[in-house]
């Protein structure tokens, strides 16, 4: 489903930072991959390269067989197949919950209003905030906003979902409701790449865990491997700090 080969990314502003240095991995359809690592290790950059919010400098990124670094690729088409959920939700504040979910369906997927509404209706029930359909995002709690954001991404019928620390901005009591939605998604067979510090989620849901440090993938393995006997010193250090 996703094939990443030797991807490099360097930022020059405000100063030179090598955010990714030769990242390679493959993610199969239906797989749930959790990415962990210390702050500044390049997790977000890796995720954002997958839907070309950041343009990788070199290497190859294939999404469902399409090379997104190829200039001829219509990136908007690929992005519609790749849902993204942000740490800060990024809901559209001038639109209601319902409009947030229907807008891209109509504009990008060219669905009729009726079809878009039907889809939104179904998804709002699924994430459990059906009663807030006509509210504006500012009037929702963080947990509710993040669930709307997930519904908004799902409305495009993506083949892959990317989550960048979806619970980091939430009050502790709301983390559970968001993780529950993500667990359901995982059980339904959605391909997911999740950057998170929620080790419980990793242990329970992940098929594979990727540990990144200083722009590179240091260690890959099953959750059991990671939490029982990680091989690298840096992994051990990181896990000892976080657990």
């Amino acid at each position: 489903m996703i094939e990443v080969t030797d991807v490099h990314k360097t930022f020059f502003v405000p100063h030179k930072v090598k955010a990714l240095v030769g990242v390679s991995t493959q993610i199969a359809a239906g797989e749930v991959v959790v990415v962990i690592g210390p702050s500044g290790s390049g997790k977000s950059t890796f995720l954002r390269c997958l839907n070309h919010l950041e343009a990788a400098d070199s290497g190859h990124i294939l999404i469902d067989g399409i090379d997104i670094l190829d200039r001829k690729t219509n990136i908007n088409k690929v992005r519609a197949e790749v849902g993204m959920v942000f740490q800060s939700f990024n809901l559209f504040p001038h639109k209601t919950v319902l409009e947030n979910i229907t807008l891209a369906q109509k504009v990008v997927r060219k669905r009729s209003t009726a079809a878009a509404l039907e889809k939104a209706d179904y998804l709002l029930k699924k994430v459990g905030i059906h009663d807030k359909a006509n509210a504006y995002p500012d009037n929702l709690s963080g947990g509710q906003q993040q669930r709307v954001a997930i519904a908004r991404a799902l409305a495009m019928d993506p083949k892959v979902m990317l989550f960048d620390e979806p619970t980091s901005a939430l009050d502790p009591e709301m983390i559970g409701e968001v993780l529950d939605v993500m667990k359901t998604l995982a059980q339904e067979g959605m391909t997911m790449v999740v950057v998170t510090h929620e080790m419980g989620f990793a242990r329970e849901v992940a098929d594979r865990v990727i540990f990144m440090d200083e722009g590179a993938i240091v260690e890959v393995g099953t959750p059991e491997h990671f939490f029982k006997n990680p091989t690298h010193d840096r992994t051990k250090l990181f896990l000892s700090q976080i657990l």
Partner: peptide
């Protein structure tokens, strides 16, 4: 983040700008 959210849904630059 607003532009990024719009673009990540597959909207084009002008669409994100307009909507």
């Amino acid at each position: 983040g607003q532009t990024e959210a719009a673009r990540s849904l597959g909207m084009t630059g002008p669409q994100a700008m307009f909507y």
